[in-house]
Simulated scan of single mutants.
Amino acid sequence: MFASNTSPRARTRQYSSSSSTASMSQRDSMDLDNSGALDIQRALDIARNTEGDLDHYVAKYLEEQLAEVWHRLESRPNSYVLSKDEFAIFNYFVGRYHDSTVAEKAIARFWSSYQDNASS
């Protein structure tokens, strides 16, 4: 079970998709709805579906989210259980942590917790 006090609130960020460096397809993918809100799942969808350079604002948002997740993992390396969104962001960047026992244990705890929740 995920600890409710350790899961961050769903974070959103407003951004403009009118960047002159963003390709037309990137702008279209960023405008999935008219709210302009960026959350982890939306940012990951954009990143996974972008060919070429990722929009600077999306890349920055993902890096900030990853830094926050890693900070939480480092503060409780033997007990912190990732939420689904935290796991998604961490999994997107997992190659950076291939030699980390903290990362390995966090992934194992996530899957153990996920399987426990699925069977209840």
Rank of each mutant, 00 (worst) to 15 (best):
A103I: 09
N49A: 00
L32R: 12
A43T: 00
E104R: 15
R13M: 09
S7T: 12
V69Q: 06
D53N: 09
V94G: 07
R11T: 15
E104N: 15
E74M: 11
N78A: 09
E86Q: 14
S29E: 09
K105A: 14
D45N: 13
A106N: 00
Q115G: 07
S79V: 04
D116E: 15
D55E: 10
R27A: 04
K105M: 14
Q115D: 08
L66G: 01
D99M: 14
D99C: 11
Q115S: 10
F2D: 15
S17K: 10
T21G: 07
T12L: 04
Y61H: 04
A47C: 01
P77A: 07
S120L: 14
V81M: 06
Q14R: 11
R42M: 06
E51G: 11
A103Q: 05
S75H: 06
L32T: 12
L62T: 00
Y92M: 03
P8V: 08
A108C: 06
K105I: 09
L66C: 01
N117H: 12
H98F: 10
I89E: 00
I46P: 03
E63G: 03
V69F: 02
S83L: 02
S112T: 15
I107C: 10
H71N: 13
Y97R: 05
H56T: 12
V102M: 15
Q65N: 07
T50I: 06
W111C: 01
S19R: 09
K84V: 14
A59D: 05
A22R: 02
L62P: 00
W111G: 01
I107Y: 06
K84L: 14
A47R: 07
D31Q: 15
V102C: 08
N91K: 11
V81P: 04
S20Q: 11
L66R: 04
N34I: 05
Y92R: 09
T12M: 07
P77Q: 03
D99F: 13
L54G: 01
F90K: 05
L44G: 00
H98Y: 12
D45F: 15
D31S: 15
A59E: 08
Y97H: 11
D33P: 04
S23M: 05
L66A: 04
A88G: 02
W111A: 00
R27S: 02
I40R: 13
S112L: 13
L54T: 06
G36N: 07
Q41R: 10
S79L: 07
R11Q: 15
A43Q: 07
